[in-house]
Design a protein around this nucleic acid. Structure first.
Lengths: 114, 114
DNA sequence: TCATTGCTCAACTATATGGTTGAGCAATCG
DNA sequence: CGATTGCTCAACCATATAGTTGAGCAATGA
């Protein structure tokens, strides 16, 4: 049988949208991507990403408030890490999708889509 | 072996972020949710969602440009449908996550988090 | 042909948010 | 104690975007 989906409440819609919104930004995705392999300090993330310190800190704070990353103080440093294993599945799903869309676009262009 | 993740190119980051951005809005999630069971005309979506016609049309156009829905003309009507099966998995993943976060919040509040 | 229906689009306003700058706080060091 | 380091936060500006309004287009019907 086909799945039956309930209508979502406005609160649920807002919450889910908020989760997507946290990931709807290249800089934040980059930071998340840098945390895929291992936890890192803000300084490391700043160096690896090329973002300004204040900007990176702001993005990390947002990701933390959204529950995507954990924050831990270690001496002078603050260490961030991924908070949710689902991040990997989510990234794979979206990246696959984007690659497929890009491939379809390319095919369309080659066929005379322009 | 633990997964090794490559750093994503700026173009890829921007594309993936764009996909998330398309879903980072309660009204658009509501429209997507209404399409879970079956395809619908704009008129049906407007009535079911409570959005204004122009607003719904704008959101649907954006979802279409992002590749999340298909568009088909049927007489006077325009019929929209989900374009990607992954939508279901994505929604399930995010909704589970949001429910867990909400549960954790509630526990924290009960324990004296305020 | 002209009117109606169903939808899209352009232009506009209000709000949200990314990025910068400078202040400031907590932990370590001397 | 004061100085330094690593980071956060508030205030600001520029841009992006959700929602409205009104114009306009395509398909049907008279």
């Amino acid at each position: 049988m086909a799945k039956k989906h309930d209508t979502m409440s406005p609160q649920m819609l807002e919450r889910v949208a908020g989760q997507f919104r946290a990931l709807a930004e290249p800089s934040r995705l980059q930071l998340m991507n840098l945390l895929f392999d291992r936890e890192r300090t803000v300084g490391e993330l700043v160096e690896a990403s090329g973002l300004s310190l204040a900007n990176a800190s702001k993005h990390l704070g947002l990701l933390h408030r959204a529950g995507w990353v954990t924050r831990r103080k270690d001496g002078l440093n603050v260490v961030y890490a991924l908070a949710d294993e689902r991040t990997f599945g989510l990234c794979e799903l979206m990246c696959d999708r984007v690659r497929e869309l890009a491939a379809a676009e390319a095919t369309f262009a080659k066929r005379g889509g322009g």
